[in-house]
Every structure is written in structure tokens, then in C-alpha cells.
Design a binder for these strands. Structure first.
Lengths: 369, 369
DNA sequence: GTTAGCACTCGAAAAGGTTGAGTGCTAACA
DNA sequence: TGTTAGCACTCAACCTTTTCGAGTGCTAAC
């Protein structure tokens, strides 16, 4: 945050102009271009001198002797930290987003998937969403639904509004009444309990109460466990992979190939998603070589974590070329985050009760905006 | 099917050699290459003459005067219809597939998604799966699960083992007992009925029986209807889009771009999926210009429809370059189809009862293999 | 009917030439 | 002391030319 002590007003201005131009044109930027396009009352020669200084300080670099300059990671970092203009308000867009989220609000995983799609559409980059792996999942309801003589549906509803179901076959017919009875026993015993307290053994014991044969109960309890496991598992959504090819950086198909390979790798995704960090706005921006470890050194990742009532419900990351349009990406994610958290707070009393209980108020817009 | 009357044994042999070589190398094939690689006791000159004949007959064409030959659509068609060798059995692969399908068998949409993934993995091409839009959906069970005071989960299980659920908020608290009571009424009245007999009005009327306020019942019935609608809607799964870039035909990124654009277009997908036709094996192969209408004239599509108990439960299509490895693609899809239908028939008595009722036997492997 | 031989074609790759945007440096200027 | 004009230099991009070789068609001999 201190790196701009050495940069005077003019250097900052020129750096910003170079980066803006480069983001837009994806061509190395020359001093004459800046002198012509950005009216700063300076000749190309002066700008040339300043750019030489900026290069020496590490904010810019040139691909080869006689070409224009390209921002370095350090340059981008300064740009992101100090020069981003807040995006213009866009009520139409806001309305559209609200609309697209409207009927998704009830279930978090659908909600985050929808957010991921929206963000990808807004930014034209790849977006990766994930539901956050909560340390402990509370089971809100377990239900066993009779489907026909030889199959039942196990349904588990957990907090964070996660619903998982599994259709299981049972070896011998079971009357619907017995199923409902069993469902009642299981449900009464476990709803409200944290998942780790529900072991296979306890489920079995409870099931035994119903007097149904072990052979029949086993697949059902297995089904319930499968559902709980799925509730605890993080989900990932990658959206907009096709848009990628539209970026001019992928003129060469090999780059596209290697990027696609990388982005499909599960470990890489996890690293991207889990990149922590908390700037004032709640976004994490990781630029170029800053995330070299992941093989992502030519790319930048901007991550927004969504927090409701103090706990993280998931995140959306945008992955794009280092010269991505940070302004657009950051404002889109900020916007999304704000809107989602506000909406969740408003709906809190209804669809996400167990989370808002923890916040002091859920009427005003008071939380950690 | 009659086009090979004019082709003698030797021409067929040469045609096959050219296509095999082209599929493998993706380079126009010259007469000398054939003479060298495929030991047919003929000199390049003879082969050259034959190839000239084949070109005149429309089975081959040459990109320019002094290059090798490339198969035409007619050539591929002959190849596909008459020259495909059955794939070697591969027990390890078979076991892997069975394993990957194992716990997916209960729900058709998951099953088809899994099949699509597997086929794409096996062939290295893009695969598109779809659940077949049944004309009428039968509802097997409807359940309303109390989640907490202000939200309930509506669950609809339809035939073809489709499960849809939706979490809905209700405006005023409702005790779990009342919810279960309501669930019982709705379920008893509608399970086993075809979906079109369940109108919003009838649901409402039934709900009124419970004596719960209309305000509260409405979002719940809406939820049920949403679920039914989803059961009736076809789903599409596109898998392996990234693999595409590995094909040498996408040396030029613009081709990749336009293909991706095309493959994302919903209408194109529907055309691909709905391409009908029934060869003896139950697969449809549409080659190059044969599907010119769809803008797919440089690609081929192989579609397998999965039929269980006489009705179609969905399909998987492989979309790839015209010079795709037909042998591999066709055998993979045939294999998948066989396995899936056999498995469905075996499991029939348990997880897919209403479909197997219609078949005469479900013990032997007797059906339309 | 098959094959060897040969002239010819034409794309792909290599080699050479030109252009122009961009740089660094120096010297003049305010 | 900071700014600017001028100039020599660099180097990727682009165009043109040349070379190369795989492939063809045709003819004549087997």
C-alpha cells in the first residue's frame, strides 16, 4: 500500500493511462499513443521519459526494446488499489439481476449458481462459484417419502437451505403407512441436530424402533447418509468457459488449451476459490504473478465471499487474463455481493431464519455492508 | 445402401484405407502413403488410378490439384454403413462404466448425465445428453415436508424416476403436524395421476380441505406446480466441451469459436438431439453435409436413444468433426446403450417398475437388444 | 491390367526485404 | 531544472520471393 510514495501525481496519471489503454487495446502502449489520446498537455518525449522511469521502478515492462510498454503485476496492483473508479449505477441491470435471483432465493446452492452465471454474463469472463464448506451442518428435517411399493425417497434439508434427496430401492415391499411412521421417528429424532451427531449407528437404532426389518432399513439409512454427505460437500459451478475464447489473448489455441486444462483441474479450482484475504470491500484480488504457485501467473482472480449473518455461505470468483477489466469485474462482484447479502438479510426472517437469529437487527440495513 | 454396387472389392479396400488413414492423421492421403502403409501388393500408380476413379464417383475429393485425397460425405457414409469393424471387447472398461453408473441408477436425469460424461470421456468428443420429453408425466408421489416454522419443502416424484423439490416460504407459521396432514391429503389425492389431470384449481380445492388459510396454501401449491413443470421439461447436458480444443481441426481458433457458439445454441442442440432415424443398431449417424441445415455441415453427429420397456427415456449424442473416429464413437454408444438398457431391465422390477410392466419378460436378455 | 518414369502443380516453409511504431539519447529551449 | 524537438537505432510484423517436396496425371513399357 506504500508503493506509491515514490510516484508523483503525473507518474500515477501516466500509469493509469497506460493501463487503461492496455486493458482496452491489448497492445503494448507507446508514449505517442498516450500523448495523443489522453490530453495531458505533455509531449510524447516527456511521457517517454516518465515511462522509462516507471519501467525502472517496476510498474511497467517492455516486451522488447522497440515496443510499447505493458503493465507489470506491480503496476496492476497499484492500479487496483488506488485508481479504480467506482462504477456508474445501473438501475436496469440491477433490476435484471434481482429478477434473475428472485425465485432462486430459497436454496443457497441454486442461488450461488445463479450468481455465478450472472457474474459471468456481466463480465464476459469465466466465473467459478462455490458453496462454502461449512464446518458443521445442521439437519433441519429428514423425511422419507413412499414412492411405490419398492422404492422410497429420502430427503434431507440442512441449514443454509440445502436440500438433497435420493431415491432408494428397498428389497421388500413396505406399506406407505409404515414408511411415514419410520419417517416420523427419524425426523423427530434428528431434526435440529448437527450432522456429526447423527452417526449411522444412531440412525439404525432409531430405525429399529419402527420394527421394520434391518434389510429394508439399511438402504434407507444409507440414502439418508448419502444426502447428509452431499450437504456437507462443497459444490463448484464453472460458468462461461466458452466466453473465454472470445478474449484476444487466446489468439493462439495452445494458450486456450492449457488454460482450459488448468481451469478444469479440481485442485486449481479449490485454490482459486479458497484464496483468502479481506480488503475493505470484502473482495480479494490476486493478480498475475501473485498467484504464481497455481500456474495462474498469467491470469488474475477476483473473489467475492458472500457472508450472511457472520458466516460465509459461498463465493464467486472471476478468472480472467491479467489485463482484465478490473473496474468492471470488481464493481460487478461488489454489486452482486451487496445485493445478495442485502436480499438475504431482508428475507432473513423468512427463508434463512437460523442465520439471521445471530444478527442483532434484521430490519434496517445495519449489518456489515 | 446401394451405392457400393459400383465399387469392387479393391476400390472398397482402398477407400477404407484412405478413410482410416485420414481419420488418424487428418492429412490428405496420397497414393504412395497407402501403397507403403497398407500392404495390398499394389503400386502407388495403380492405387492412384483407383483413387482417381473413387474421386470421380464422389467418394473422395482433393483439396487442390497436387494434394492427397480427403473422404467426402458419401465416402464416410459408405464407410459407416459397410466397413466398420466391431470394437474389441474391453472388460475393464465395462467394469468401470458399470461402476460409474452404479449409484446413479435410481434417477433418470442423473443417470443420463452420467452416461453423457462417460461417453464424452470414452470418445474424447463433446457429448450431449437429453432426457426425453415424455408426452405425459405420471405423478407417483407428492410430499410436503415441514422444514421450519416458515418454510416447507415440496417434493414431487414422477415416473421415469424423476424427483424435483422446491423450498418455499410461507407467510405465517404452520405447525409440522398441519403440514403433514396437508401433505397426506395432497398425496393421497394425486399420486398415480397423470400430471395434466392435476390443475392448480384441483390442488387448491384439495388444500382447502385441510382448513389452512389460502394465503399459506398458495405458495405451497405453486411450489408443487413448479416441480411438476420441471418434471415435464427436458433437460440437456453438454459434457466435454473443453476436450474439443484438443482436436487438430481446431488449429484455427475461429473455428473453435464458431463451433462453441453453435453448440451452445439451444435450437441447434434440440435439432441434434431430436435427429431421428433408426438403423439396425438403434443409432443414428448424420455425417457432414447430411446435416447441412443446422450449420453443422463440417461435423458429424451420432445419436443413441435409450429405450426401456418400449418408451424412450432419453438420448446421448456425440458431436465431432466429420473425420471423427466413427468406429470408436459408434461402439461406445452402442455399448452404453446396451449396458444401460440391460441394467434398466434387470433393475426393472425394483426401481423402474411402471415401465417394465409393459415388457413381456424381464429375466432373460430377451428384449430389443 | 499393372507399373515405372516424368513433367507438372501447388501449398508450406524458409529466406530476404521493407515498413513503421516505438525507443533512448542528445541538444536546444523556457 | 524540467520540457521538447530531432535523430539514429531496433525489432516485430508483413510482404514477396525462393525453394522444396509430396502428390498428381499421363504415357509408354511390361
Amino acid at each position: 500500500m506504500e508503493e506509491n510514495k515514490e510516484l508523483d501525481e503525473r507518474k500515477l496519471m501516466i500509469l493509469k493511462a497506460v493501463i487503461d489503454d492496455y486493458i482496452q487495446s491489448f497492445e503494448p502502449v507507446g508514449s505517442r499513443t498516450i500523448a495523443r489520446k489522453y490530453d495531458m498537455g505533455l509531449s510524447s518525449a516527456t511521457i517517454r521519459n516518465e515511462m522509462a522511469d516507471l519501467e525502472e521502478m517496476g510498474y511497467l515492462s517492455s516486451p522488447h526494446t522497440s515496443s510499447g510498454r505493458v503493465p507489470s503485476t506491480k503496476g496492476y496492483r497499484t492500479y487496483v488499489n488506488h485508481m479504480l473508479e467506482p462504477a456508474a449505477e445501473n438501475p436496469a441491470l440491477a433490476a435484471e439481476i434481482v429478477g434473475r435471483l428472485e425465485d432462486k432465493m430459497t436454496e443457497y446452492s441454486k442461488l450461488i449458481k445463479a450468481c455465478t452465471e450472472i457474474v459471468s454474463d456481466m463480465t464476459h469472463y469465466i466465473a467459478i462459484g462455490s458453496t462454502h464448506g461449512r464446518d458443521s451442518v445442521n439437519v433441519k428435517a429428514i423425511q422419507i417419502v413412499p414412492v411405490d411399493e419398492t422404492s422410497v425417497l429420502t430427503v434431507v434439508v440442512a441449514d443454509a437451505n440445502t436440500v438433497k434427496s435420493k431415491l432408494v430401492s428397498i428389497p421388500e415391499p413396505l406399506e406407505p403407512e409404515r414408511v411415514i411412521e419410520l419417517s416420523g421417528i427419524v425426523n423427530r429424532s434428528f431434526s435440529g441436530k448437527p450432522a456429526e451427531m447423527i452417526s449411522l449407528m444412531t440412525v439404525n437404532r432409531v430405525a429399529d424402533e419402527s420394527g421394520i426389518s434391518r434389510n429394508t432399513v439399511l438402504p434407507i439409512t444409507d440414502g439418508i447418509f448419502e444426502c447428509i454427505k452431499q450437504c456437507e460437500t462443497d459444490e463448484f459451478f464453472t460458468e462461461g468457459a466458452a466466453k473465454l475464447l472470445k478474449s484476444p489473448e487466446f489468439d493462439n489455441i495452445d494458450k486456450a488449451r492449457s488454460f482450459i486444462d488448468m481451469i478444469q483441474d479440481k485442485e486449481t479450482i479449490e485454490k482459486i476459490v479458497n484464496a483468502s484475504g479481506d480488503s475493505e470491500s470484502g473482495l480479494t484480488v490476486s493478480i498475475g504473478t501473485e498467484n504464481s504457485g497455481e500456474g495462474l501467473s498469467d491470469y488474475s482472480v477476483v473473489t467475492a465471499k458472500f457472508e450472511v449473518g457472520g458466516s460465509c455461505i459461498g463465493s464467486v470468483s472471476v478468472v480472467g487474463p491479467t489485463r482484465m477489466d478490473y473496474s468492471k469485474v470488481i464493481s460487478s462482484l461488489e454489486y452482486m455481493k451487496q445485493m445478495l447479502e442485502k436480499k438475504a438479510r431482508e428475507d432473513g426472517g423468512r427463508s434463512i431464519p437460523e442465520l439471521t437469529v445471530k444478527t442483532e437487527d434484521n430490519e434496517g440495513g445495519g449489518g456489515a455492508s
